[in-house]
Simulated scan of single mutants.
Amino acid sequence: MRIKLYENRDFMRRTQIKLMQEEVHIWCIRWKEVIPVFEYYQLMLDQKEKEKMEEYYFYEDRMRYVAGKVITKLVLIQYLEEEEISFLSHKFGKPYYKSISGKQDIEFNISHSGEMILVAFSRDAKIGVDIQEIIDCSEYLEIARSFFEPEEVKNIEESNSKELFFQYWSAKEAYLKAIGVGLLKGMSFFSVKDGVIKENGRKKDHWKLIPIKVQGYAAYIALKEKEKSGK
């Protein structure tokens, strides 16, 4: 599986980019640098999305939401060679679109934090992505003790590192989003220590956790390659 990273300059000329088999495309966009694009393409939001947008009181929160939706729709339209894409959502909120006859489905996932929007796409893998701005957080040890697996908590306590806390948090959210359960099931039933996903002490076969380097942020993609037909 090849991982390709795209940034703002690629977003502005995305028509030259195609999503091929056995590729994961990660779009890492600084939304503040292209605000006019997102303000213009707000027209792409459906009624429910517009209502959700209006629930955000602060402008930056609203624009992060809009930017995530717009990036995803514009890129999917290009990949699928369609004129319009509408989103649905699974039980716990993971977005998807209705299958298009004659075209292979593309799985995608969205995350945003601070000035960054992260969106991942694949034709061949189940995916989840998460990004967390590494901010001052004096309570990070208490949060880890409440939500993380004991070995992860021990590592954070020994390192006394808020960066490690955010790395674990991002990796965990990416996996939860990939399996489509969100935070309702909690974070302590599995671990991501050393980049390996384990549930009840057993390694999750065929799953990968891949860090994404973004200065000032912790970011991960969790992926599981789909079985090839005939196997």
Score class of each variant (00 low, 15 high):
2 R>L: 09
5 L>T: 13
5 L>N: 15
7 E>C: 14
7 E>T: 15
13 R>P: 03
14 R>I: 08
17 I>D: 02
19 L>D: 04
21 Q>H: 08
22 E>I: 03
29 I>T: 00
30 R>M: 09
32 K>N: 14
32 K>L: 06
39 E>N: 11
40 Y>W: 12
41 Y>T: 04
42 Q>W: 08
44 M>V: 11
46 D>S: 13
54 E>A: 13
56 Y>A: 07
62 R>M: 01
69 K>L: 02
71 I>M: 01
71 I>W: 00
71 I>G: 04
73 K>R: 07
73 K>C: 03
74 L>M: 12
74 L>S: 10
79 Y>E: 01
79 Y>V: 06
85 I>Q: 00
86 S>P: 02
87 F>D: 04
87 F>W: 05
94 K>Q: 05
98 K>G: 14
98 K>L: 14
99 S>M: 11
101 S>I: 12
112 H>G: 03
123 R>E: 00
124 D>Q: 06
125 A>I: 10
136 D>V: 10
136 D>K: 14
136 D>Y: 15
142 E>A: 15
142 E>N: 15
152 E>A: 09
153 V>M: 08
155 N>G: 13
159 S>A: 14
161 S>R: 05
162 K>H: 11
165 F>N: 02
170 S>H: 10
175 Y>D: 07
177 K>Y: 08
177 K>I: 06
180 G>M: 04
188 S>M: 15
188 S>Y: 15
188 S>V: 08
195 G>K: 13
203 K>Q: 14
206 H>I: 02
206 H>K: 15
206 H>L: 14
209 L>C: 08
213 K>Q: 07
214 V>H: 03
214 V>E: 02
216 G>D: 10
218 A>Y: 05
229 S>T: 03
